[in-house]
Design a protein around this nucleic acid. Structure first.
Lengths: 126, 126
DNA sequence: CAGCATCCCGAATGATACTG
DNA sequence: CAGTATCATTCGGGATGCTG
C-alpha cells in the first residue's frame, strides 16, 4: 500500500520536509557532520562558499527539524558544537548516496551539457 | 581512496551538480517520471504548486544535464513527452529514498519542530 | 568564537498575455 | 497542448558592523 503522505501534494507535511532538505547547504552540512561534531567556524571553513548568515540560518532550521543538536560549552570564548541526532543519522546515508552520485556522474552530466549547448548553438531558431 | 571530486569544495563541478539536484522541483519531477513518460501539462497537474514557468525552466535544465529526454510528437495539437534517460534512472532510486525518508520521518520532524518552538516561546530571551 | 542586526541588490518567482 | 516573452515584485543572500 502507498504511504499515508504524498510528496506530490502541495501542503503535505512530507512536502515541507522535502523542501527543507532539497537545499544544497543543508545537505552539505549534514554530510560534513556525519563522522564527528563540528564547530561553527569549522563548518564555515569546510563548506566552501557558504556565508555566515546562511550557515547560521540553515543550522537553526536543521536544529528545529531535529536533525542536529547544538551544544554550548562555557569556555572562553564560548565553544559551540553541532552534531547529528539519531534522526539526522538516519538521513545521512541517503545524503551520502546523493553526494557520491554527483561526484561519480558529473563527467557524464558535463558532457551532456556540452552536447546540449552545442546542439542549441547550431540550431538557433529551433 | 576518496573520490577525485569533493562536494565541499566551491567551484567543484560535483558541487554544481549537487546544487542542481538540491531543488525540490527537480526531485519531484524526477520522481514523477520514474515509472513512465509524462506530458508537460500532466506534470503540471501532478506536481501540485509548480508554476508553468518554473516547470518549463526546470525541465530544460534537467534535459541539459542529460537526466531526461524530451520527445515531440507531431499530433494536432502537438504532444511532448518527458522521460528519464539512463542517467536519470541511475539517480531515481536515491531520489525515492529521499522522498520516502521525508514521508516516513515527517511525524518525527513535526514533533521536533513543535518542541523547538515551545522551548523558544518559553525562553524568549535565551 | 559564535553569532545577530541592518542595509541593499540581484536573481528567482508569479502574473499576464501571446504563439505555433 | 506546450510553451515563450514581458513586467512587477519579493526576498534570499552578501557585505558590513556590532555583541556576549
Amino acid at each position: 500500500m502507498p504511504p499515508s503522505y504524498n510528496v506530490y501534494e502541495d501542503r503535505c507535511p512530507a512536502r515541507q520536509v522535502l523542501d527543507r532538505l532539497a537545499d544544497k547547504w543543508a545537505l552539505l552540512i549534514l554530510a560534513r557532520l556525519q563522522n564527528e561534531p563540528v564547530r561553527f567556524n569549522q563548518l564555515r571553513r569546510d563548506i566552501k562558499g557558504i556565508s555566515q548568515k546562511v550557515l547560521s540560518q540553515t543550522l537553526k532550521k536543521l536544529e528545529r527539524d531535529g536533525l542536529l543538536s547544538r551544544s554550548v560549552f562555557a569556555t572562553v570564548p564560548v565553544t559551540v558544537e553541532y552534531a547529528l541526532t539519531d534522526l539526522g543519522q538516519s538521513l545521512v546515508q541517503t545524503v551520502n548516496t546523493f553526494a557520491h552520485w554527483a561526484e561519480q556522474h558529473m563527467d557524464t552530466v558535463l558532457l551532456a551539457q556540452a552536447q546540449y549547448d552545442a546542439c542549441a548553438a547550431s540550431n538557433p531558431g529551433a
